[in-house]
Amino acid sequence: MDIDEDEDFLEVGSSKITYPGEYLTSSQAFMRGHGTYVDDEEVIASVSGMVERVNKLVTVRAIRTRYNPEVGDLVVGRITEVQPRRWKVEANSRQDAVLMLSSVNLPGGVQRRKLESDELQMRTFFEEGDLLVAEVQAFFSDGTMSLHTRSLSYGKLRNGQLVTVPPNLVRRLKSHFISLPCGVDLILGLNGYIWVSKHIKESEREGEEGFDAEAVYSNQNDQINDSTRMAISRVANIITVLASHSIPLTDLVLLEAYEWSIEQDMDVKNLLQDELGDALVASISARG
């Protein structure tokens, strides 16, 4: 490949899959970034992952890697331990995150002071095994991320199932809360944890009277009809298939994949068969 051809290498903002040792482009035309090295004036991939180009910088984001958090990220996590005035949260990062008692909404008003009685009742809010969606608020001196759930969109998760994918397949979107027309809501955690659940209307999420602690911290799932259960399973299987083929997940890709599976009148469990998964990915790639 000569320099003129290299100038057309990988449109800015796009990506492709590569493997260790693969030639990417000329070091005379581009700068090497993370996940690459230069050999004989050629930029070579040093890891298996997604090639990304930003202006003249070429990097490779490893497919199998831990989540690297940033302030403002939306994450899905699981409570692993209840400690004095805080919860420890497993969020697919290098170390457990922390959710402080002062960083959650409590009964009696969002902004009120936290009392000793609140600390004694911490397990009525979150207990071990609970799933939640939160935002990365800050980092402690040892690098541990501090979370908060001070938004009615955040908090305990119910009425669905968790799907785990490599974090680099979840792109940063305008919103990571997605509602599909099939009655399924998605929360795309940037840490690679995706929550697939029954659709909740905006009015129900916000509540008629404002913050309803009993509803927000309830451990009881709602009644879910068979068709909604099937739709949740279908979306979860689609995500699993796309992730196994290293397809980046966006709202548009997920909607197209869902519509394709319906058009094909495909049984939910059959989606996980290799040949049907390949056909799904081929269809999405062709549309893209």
Rank of each mutant, 00 (worst) to 15 (best):
S283W: 03
V38F: 07
F126P: 02
R85H: 08
D8I: 12
K201L: 01
V281D: 00
D2Q: 13
Q111K: 15
V136I: 11
K16P: 01
P181L: 05
M122Y: 09
V60P: 12
Y217D: 10
H245A: 15
E81H: 11
P167Y: 13
D226L: 15
S197F: 02
L254G: 00
E22N: 12
E275F: 06
L24H: 09
P69W: 10
I262Q: 06
A29S: 15
E202F: 00
K201G: 05
S46Y: 03
A134V: 05
T240R: 15
S285K: 14
S197C: 14
G155W: 03
I3S: 14
N225A: 09
S103K: 06
V89M: 01
D6H: 14
L57D: 08
I187D: 02
N221D: 15
V184Q: 01
N221V: 01
S175K: 08
E209W: 12
Q161M: 14
V104E: 02
S26T: 13
S233E: 09
E22I: 13
S153Y: 10
E135K: 04
H199I: 05
M50P: 06
G33Y: 12
K198E: 13
R86F: 03
S261N: 07
I44H: 06
S227I: 03
R85M: 06
E127T: 15
V196D: 08
L169F: 10
S46L: 06
L74Y: 06
F125N: 01
V216H: 09
S48I: 05
V133K: 06
E42V: 01
I232A: 00
T18P: 03
S48Q: 11
S14G: 08
M122S: 09
D212L: 01
G288D: 10
